[in-house]
Amino acid sequence: MTVLASVLTALGDPWDQGIMQRALLEVVLLGLVGGALGCWIVLSELSYGAESLAHGMFPGLVLAALTGIPLLLGGAAGILVAALAVALAGRVPGIGRDNAVAVVVTTLFGLGVLLALSPSSPPGIQGLLFGDVLGTSAGDLLDGAALAAVVLAALWVLHWRLLAVGFDRLSARALGAPPLLADAALLILLALAVLVAVQGLGNLLVVAVLVAPAAAARLLARRLLPMMATAVAIAIVAGIAGLYLSYYVRVAAGASIAGFMVLAYALARLATLAESLRGAATLTEAN
C-alpha cells in the first residue's frame, strides 16, 4: 500500500509547480495538433516537407529572438519565406524537386545558424533549436491554443476533401475536391502546426510530433478517425512521459519528448512485426 502511495505521490508530485502545469498544457496542445495533422502528413507523404519547413523557418525565429519581436511572428514570416523559396526552387528546371528542397533548406538553416551562433548574438539561442517546453508562458499557451483550435477546426471541416484527395488524387477533382487546394490547405495547416509545436520542441525536433505518433498510429489503426485518436493519445502520453523523465532525471525535456515519440513508433513497429511473425507461424502450422 505504501508503495502504491509513494508511486502516486511521485506521479502527482511534478504537477504542483506552475512551470510543470504549463508544460503539461503545452504538451497536450502539441499532441492534439501534431497527432491529428500528422496523420495527413504521413498519409500524404509530406514528411520531408514538414522537416524542410521546420528547418527553413529557423532564420525567422532567430531574427525574432534577436530583435525582440514575438517568436510567433518571426516563425510565421520564416515559414512563408521558406515555402516561397521552396516553390521557386522547385521550378528551376533540371535539378529535381528533392534536390531543390535540400538546397533551400541548407541555405536557410545555414543562415539561421550563422545568425544564432555569431559571436555578437546573445547566448540562449539554443532554446530555438531544441525548444523550451519548461519555459512556456501563459501567453504562449494562449497563442498555441488559438492556433490549435484553428488547425483542428480546419481539419474537421476539410476532412472529406482531404480524404478524397489522399485516397485517389486523380479522381478527386471530379468528386468536387480539387487536389491543389487540398495541398495548399495542408501546407498552411502544417505551417500553423509547426508554429504551435516549435515552442515545446524547437526547430530541430518539431518534426518528431508531426511524424512519429501518426506513423505509429498508422500501424495500429485501420480507419482514419481511430488513427487520429491513437496518434493524439500517443503524442500526449509520450509528451507526459518526457516531462516525467526530465523532471526526475533532469534530462532535456524537448529531446526526451521527441525520443519517447520515436520510441512509440519503434514499439508499434515491433508489435506489428511480432504479430505478422505469429501469423506466419500459424500459417505454417496449418499447412
Binding site: F167, L175, A177, A221, M227
Partner: peptide, 20 residues
C-alpha cells in the same frame, strides 16, 4: 492508383461521392 493501404472503409469511399 487508388491506394490500397489507405485507412478507409468501403462506406467511406462511397461517401466520397457526396462531397460535391
Amino acid at each position: 492508383r487508388s491506394r490500397l493501404d489507405f485507412p478507409v472503409s468501403a462506406l467511406d469511399v462511397a461517401l466520397m461521392g457526396t462531397i460535391a
